[in-house]
């Protein structure tokens, strides 16, 4: 019977065991490549775990989500290292996108997980860190030509600052072209705040963010197809 690599990886993630996950992927890479592991092991494992996480079947924990992000990041690092060693140009195929914590928000963990999942899904991510003022977000968006901006906020008090981000997008005439993805604990708790604060979409977990960014990127292209 063929070994269930992705099932084993899900078990490592559910045990929040990053070391075991990396050993498993090293085992895989003895006969195949890390690049193949992305499509054949990591992606199905994350899809399966993501469903558990979103529905909270089996009581998923923050630690499991964190380890899932770290496993994705670790594998991506190995893929990029292998490509560089082969002399191949390392380029992310999707994006660029810009992410950061909104002004006054200093809770980086959710954003760090978001960045790991986006990069492992092939997105070129510009991560601005914590406490990012609206103008700084939009300066970077315009500089790199991003169509999706991801804003993270953990607390209700800081999530309100998404409103100022919305205002800055509109003030620069970028409504539609720049789609605003919002995420963080408060939006999971009170989903109605996404629209109330001016967000264009959210995802149930950081693991679901790549799919959200795909949808928002397509929406941006439909609303403003011009390349700048």
């Amino acid at each position: 019977m063929a070994r269930d690599w992705s099932g084993e990886l899900v078990n490592c993630i559910r045990s929040a065991d990053r070391v075991a996950a990396n050993l498993l992927l090293n085992d895989w890479a003895e006969t195949r490549t890390y690049e193949e592991a992305v499509a054949e092991v990591l992606t199905p494992a994350l899809e399966h775990f993501g469903n558990l996480w979103a529905s909270n079947v089996g009581e998923t924990s923050l630690a499991q989500g964190y380890v899932a992000a770290k496993v994705a990041e670790d594998l991506l690092d190995r893929v990029l290292a292998a490509q560089a060693a082969d002399g191949r140009t390392v380029e992310m195929e999707k994006g660029p996108v810009v992410v950061g914590n909104v002004e006054d928000d200093y809770h980086p963990l959710g954003r760090a997980m978001l960045v790991a999942f986006l990069r492992s899904a092939g997105w070129n991510v510009h991560d601005l860190g914590v406490d990012v003022p609206p103008a700084e977000f939009l300066d970077k968006v315009e500089e790199v030509g991003a169509r999706v901006l991801g804003a993270s906020a953990m607390m209700f008090s800081t999530a309100r600052n998404v409103i100022h981000l919305r205002e800055e997008i509109d003030r620069r005439g970028l409504r539609g072209r720049v789609q605003l993805a919002v995420g963080g604990a408060v939006f999971k708790l009170r989903p109605e705040l996404v629209e109330q604060f001016g967000g264009d979409g959210t995802a149930p977990t950081a693991l679901h963010a790549p799919a959200l960014f795909e949808r928002l990127w397509q929406r941006s292209l439909e609303l403003d197809p011009v390349t700048r």
């Binding site: 929040a16 065991d17 990053r18 070391v19 923050l62 630690a63 964190y66 380890v67 809770h107 980086p108 963990l109 760090a112």
Partner: peptide
């Protein structure tokens, strides 16, 4: 030390 560093310590 931040949440991430503490999680790392607890797990690893």
């Amino acid at each position: 030390m931040g949440v991430e560093a503490w999680l790392e310590a607890l797990l690893s």
